[in-house]
Every structure is written in structure tokens, then in C-alpha cells.
């Protein structure tokens, strides 16, 4: 309390924080630490994450595919069911990985390991920490995505050369979710609150044109789904792997660019408020 008033009384010039206190240009150090920690503790768990979308692809794409046959995409293209859901699973995997890394992992480090407190007492700034963590999540996401795409290629589910661009698209999606996820996590206090994140992710996962086109829903529900981030990710990746590319896809890209910006702004603000003020 008295802290606040003192700060308010201080001359404005003293209150301006130099940019350096936000960002020391050393996100690499944070990534390095994360990499060491992963390597020494649970790399097996990390590698195993690759199998999750594969299981889904085999079960739903191939197993369920025998019941479904072909489906038509948003653009009216008729594709085998496996080719329909594979890009969606890729986008979902990007979301899940990014959310896991940026929420549970970060939450644990913030609340229990007090890791960030230590990091921020060095020359590192909050933006270094945020970017470092996010980059690490992206690195991991990229590994999964490459693996998954190889499987897709082997199963003949990449229908076009545009599919090569799916990798950067996946990173974009992961970046978007990671930065927003981290921003939200920085406001969380208990494990119970963390559970709510799953409640938001489950409907997104089920409804965002992942397993079937959203045209089966009433119009209003379609609008709701289209407002949510995962739908944009699914459509973007699906457009690329099926080769149905058009300029309209830039809207999806823009959506993620905005997500990233908002997420980073809030994360940085929050980390500074928590640990530096």
C-alpha cells in the first residue's frame, strides 16, 4: 500500500522503465535451460507426444474412415476421410502441445519451482522468459509436426505440394496458442483454475471442423465456431495439405498474428507485475 503511494509521488521521469528491463535479448538462455531440463528428466515423455496424433489418425482416419468413406471440405473438394482429418489433427496437436507447454508447465514453474523469480533476478527480462518458453514449445511442436507430416506422406494424405507450407503454419498456430496460454496462466492461482483451460479446449477440439465439416451445425453455431482460434488453424492447414489454397487464407494468418501480439503483451505485463514491481 505505502509502496504504491510512494511510487505515485515519484517524478514521472523516474517511473519510465527502459526497454532493457523488459527484454535483454537473451531468450536463448531460457531456452537452453528448458532444453537441459527436458533432456535430463523426461525426454521419453516428450518424444512420446508424437504418438498421440498418430493414434488418432489411425483410429479415426482409418478405422472410422471405413464407415465414413469420402467427405467434402469447406471448399467443396471431395477427399478421403483420413485426408480430411489428418490436417485437423496436425493443427490440434499444435494446439495441445503449445497449450500444455505454456500452461501446466509454466504454471508449475511459476507457482512451485519459483523458477522465474530466479531468472528475473538476473539480467533477463520478462520478455526473455516469455519468448524463451514459447520458442521452446515451438521447437517441440516443430518436431512433432515434422514427424506427423512424414506419416501423412507415407499414408498418401498430403494431396499437394502446398503441404510443405503446413509446417510454418503449424508453428504459427502453436505460437498463437502458446502466447495466449502463457498470458492466461500468468493470471492463474490454483490447479482447479487450470482445469478450466481443458474445458475450453475440449469443445474447440470437438467442434472446429476437426472430424467433420461444420456445415452439419445450425448457422449460429457455425459463427461461434468460426470465432474460435482452432477453426482458423484447422482450415489453414487443411487448405495447404489438400491444395485448396486461396487468398482468403490470409485471414487465418492474420487471426493468429493478432493472438500472438495480444498474448505477448499480456504475458510481459503480468510477469513484470508479478516479479519485478
Amino acid at each position: 500500500m505505502s509502496d504504491l503511494t510512494q511510487r505515485d509521488l515519484a517524478p514521472a521521469s523516474l517511473r519510465v522503465r527502459p526497454a532493457r528491463s523488459l527484454y535483454a535479448g537473451n531468450a536463448r538462455a531460457v531456452m537452453f535451460r528448458g532444453w537441459r531440463a527436458t533432456r535430463s528428466t523426461n525426454w521419453l515423455v516428450m518424444v512420446s507426444g508424437f504418438f498421440e496424433p498418430i493414434f488418432y489418425l489411425l483410429a479415426m482416419g482409418i478405422g472410422l474412415g471405413t464407415l465414413v468413406g469420402d467427405v467434402s471440405t469447406e471448399g467443396g473438394q471431395v477427399v478421403p476421410y483420413a485426408a480430411f482429418i489428418a490436417p485437423a489433427l496436425l493443427a490440434v496437436a499444435a494446439m495441445n502441445g503449445a497449450i500444455y507447454d505454456s500452461t501446466w508447465n509454466v504454471f508449475f514453474k511459476m507457482q512451485f519451482a519459483r523458477l522465474y523469480e530466479g531468472m528475473l533476478s538476473t539480467s533477463l527480462g520478462p520478455l526473455d522468459v516469455a519468448l524463451g518458453e514459447i520458442m521452446l514449445a515451438l521447437l517441440r511442436g516443430a518436431l512433432y509436426a515434422v514427424g506427423f507430416q512424414i506419416v501423412m506422406q507415407a499414408l498418401g494424405l498430403n494431396l499437394s505440394w502446398w503441404a510443405l507450407l503446413a509446417l510454418p503454419a503449424v508453428l504459427l498456430i502453436a505460437f498463437g496458442f502458446a502466447s495466449v496460454g502463457m498470458a492466461i496462466t500468468s493470471y492463474m492461482k490454483t490447479f482447479q483454475q487450470m482445469d478450466w483451460i481443458s474445458f475450453v479446449m475440449l469443445p474447440m477440439f470437438l467442434f472446429s471442423a476437426t472430424f467433420y465439416p461444420i456445415t452439419v451445425y445450425p448457422q449460429w453455431l457455425q459463427y461461434v465456431i468460426q470465432a474460435l482460434p482452432l477453426w482458423h488453424g484447422v482450415e489453414l492447414v487443411r487448405g495447404l495439405t489438400t491444395g485448396a489454397v486461396d487468398w482468403g487464407m490470409l485471414w487465418h494468418v492474420l487471426y493468429y498474428a493478432v493472438m500472438i501480439a495480444i498474448g505477448l503483451v499480456f504475458t510481459t505485463k503480468r510477469l513484470r507485475a508479478l516479479f519485478l514491481d
Binding site: L64, D70, V71, L206, F207, F211
Partner: peptide
């Protein structure tokens, strides 16, 4: 409670209604 009511609702609707449209419709 939310998970107990929410997730069955979501799953039943997404799979039993949404996915069902294309499963029942295609074959």
C-alpha cells in the same frame, strides 16, 4: 459437476449428432 454434465453433452452432441450426420449419411 461441469465436467460431469459438460463433457457428456459435448461428446454426445459432437459425435452422436455431428459426426453421426456424415456416418449415417455416407453409407
Amino acid at each position: 459437476v461441469v465436467a460431469g454434465i459438460g463433457s457428456p453433452l459435448l461428446y454426445l452432441y459432437a459425435l452422436g449428432v455431428g459426426l453421426a450426420t456424415i456416418v449415417d449419411g455416407s453409407v
